[in-house]
Simulated assay, not measured.
Amino acid sequence: MIYNENAIAAFERRYRANFINSLGGFKSLVLIGTKNSDGSENLATLSSLFHLGADPALCGIILRPATMFSSTLDNILEQQYYTINHVSPVFVQQAHQCSAKYPKGVSEFEKVGLTPEYLEKIPVPFVRESKIKFACNFVQETAIELNGTTLVIGQITTAFVPNRYLKDDGYIDIEEAGTITSSGLDSYHTTSRIERLPYAKP
């Protein structure tokens, strides 16, 4: 089948969301940990994390339009810090539940049964159950007027990676760590490596 612009626009709203979200393929699945000035902890499910560069160490996330339920962007701008936590199969259901629209001030940690953890004097919570996690310092916010989303760029300040997953050349074996990925809005996957190839040269 061929789906042109008019056909896609005519899809029912939820059908179109599923179609477009799965069209791009597999995505990183992470939990974003934040906290506000009142001490309320927040945990958000995110599949829009992407690498921006290694020197300096930058990554980006796309946050959906703010609603009365969303706290992540407000907390990042307020505290200037956030954590990014990999998801493992043992807590994928809790990670998925963090995408529910809980009111501001309600802790997703508490609602879904995950554990906030504070490390290295970083003022926002990590997920204790996560094997690989890192902290970011807020660097830049860019409003995307096309759809009301926000690009947030952060600089990676501290990373927590168990030694057994870190290879001699700096490669982190996220498959060995059990990190899972996502497709669409609600489908979660483990991975199977085909092979790891040498640096490509002409």
Rank of each mutant, 00 (worst) to 15 (best):
M1F: 09
I2H: 12
I8Y: 06
A10P: 03
F11I: 05
R13W: 09
R16K: 14
A17W: 06
N18P: 00
F19L: 15
N21F: 02
S22M: 09
S28R: 03
K35L: 11
K35H: 05
D38G: 07
S40P: 04
S40D: 14
E41Q: 12
N42P: 01
A44N: 12
S47Q: 01
S48W: 02
P56D: 10
M68D: 14
F69Y: 15
V92A: 01
Q93I: 07
A95F: 03
H96L: 04
Q97I: 00
A100F: 10
A100H: 13
K101M: 11
Y102K: 06
G105Y: 09
E108F: 07
L114A: 02
L114K: 05
T115H: 12
L119K: 11
P125M: 02
P125A: 05
K131F: 01
K131R: 15
F134Y: 13
I144W: 08
L146W: 06
I153E: 01
Q155G: 04
R164H: 11
L166S: 09
D169A: 08
G170P: 03
G178R: 03
G184C: 04
L185T: 08
S187T: 12
H189F: 15
R193C: 00
I194G: 00
E195A: 14
L197C: 11
P198E: 13
P198M: 12
K201H: 11
